[in-house]
Computed example of a mutant assay.
Amino acid sequence: MSRLLITDAHLLHPETGTRTDLAWIEVADGRIAATGTGRPPGLGQNDVRVLNAAGATVLPGLIDAHVHLLVTSLDLPAIASWTPGYLTVRALAEAERMLRRGFTTVRDVGGADHGMARALAEGLALGPRLVHGGKALSQTGGHGDLRPLGDDSVPCCESRPNFARIADGVDADR
């Protein structure tokens, strides 16, 4: 079991909107196990990593249930020239920025794939836990149709990384 003890922290309780005086928080296997004031448990134990927050405010990890990791720019002409590798690196850099802003879980509803989720889970890149929903479905001209006006071509198998797939009608949706 992995244990972390954060000491000398103000705890923000989102459910009440309150912030405590200096307190401690114990995290076991990535989850809040206990909080309190006074002498924290586990001090001096070898299996407990201690982090002194020096008066900083600590809050539970945030969850964003609607993100598009691959949409890091709306400059469509520039994006058209980016390689799949470059798109992925930009997306993973954004994932790290999300983590640093406090998001510990995000749900990508169009764009990210199992490879990005795996890379984050294995620690190959820094970022929140990623729940991916595959590609968004968009009709021609919809918000997921990023083709230039007048371009009605559909690349073979739509294998290029993107956050959406064009699906016009029942057969295309299937």
Results as ranks from 00 to 15, higher is better:
Arg39Ser: 04
Arg39Asn: 10
Arg39Asp: 10
Pro40Trp: 06
Pro41Asn: 03
Leu43Trp: 05
Gly44Val: 12
Gln45Glu: 11
Gln45Thr: 13
Gln45Phe: 07
Asn46His: 10
Asp47Asn: 05
Asp47Trp: 09
Arg49Trp: 07
Arg49Asp: 08
Arg49Thr: 14
Val50His: 00
Val50Glu: 02
Val50Arg: 01
Val50Thr: 15
Val50Ile: 15
Asn52Ser: 08
Asn52Tyr: 00
Ala53Arg: 04
Ala53Trp: 05
Gly55Thr: 12
Gly55Ile: 14
Gly55His: 04
Ala56Ser: 03
Ala56Asp: 04
Ala56Arg: 12
Thr57Glu: 01
Val58Gln: 00
Leu59Pro: 01
Leu59Asn: 03
Leu59Thr: 11
Gly61Gln: 04
Gly61Cys: 08
Ile63His: 09
Ile63Trp: 05
Asp64Ile: 02
Ala65Trp: 05
Ala65His: 00
Ala65Ser: 10
His66Pro: 00
His66Met: 07
His66Asn: 03
Leu69Ser: 06
Leu70Glu: 15
Thr72His: 04
Ser73Lys: 02
Ser73Val: 13
Ser73Cys: 01
Leu74Phe: 14
Leu74Glu: 14
Leu74Trp: 13
Asp75Ile: 11
Asp75Asn: 05
Asp75Ala: 03
Leu76Met: 11
Leu76Gly: 05
Pro77Val: 13
Pro77Trp: 02
Ala78Met: 02
Ile79Phe: 01
Ile79Tyr: 10
Ile79Gln: 10
Ala80Phe: 09
Ala80Cys: 11
Ala80Ile: 06
Ser81Met: 00
Ser81Val: 15
Trp82Ala: 07
Pro84Ala: 06
Gly85Gln: 07
Tyr86Asn: 01
Leu87Gln: 09
Leu87Asp: 07
Thr88Ser: 06
Val89Asn: 00
Arg90Tyr: 07
Ala91Ser: 10
Ala91Trp: 02
Ala91Asp: 08
Leu92Thr: 11
Leu92Trp: 02
Leu92Ala: 03
Ala93Arg: 11
Glu94Tyr: 09
Glu94Cys: 14
Glu94Ser: 11
Glu94Met: 13
Glu94Val: 15
Glu94Arg: 12
Glu96Ala: 15
Glu96Gly: 01
Arg97His: 13
Met98Phe: 05
Met98Trp: 15
Met98Arg: 10
Met98Asn: 15
Arg100His: 07
Arg100Gln: 14
Arg101Pro: 02
Gly102Glu: 05
Gly102Ile: 06
Gly102Met: 09
Gly102Ala: 04
Phe103Ser: 09
Thr104His: 09
Thr105Val: 14
Val106Phe: 05
Arg107Thr: 14
Arg107Asp: 13
Arg107Pro: 14
Arg107His: 09
Asp108Gln: 09
Asp108Thr: 15
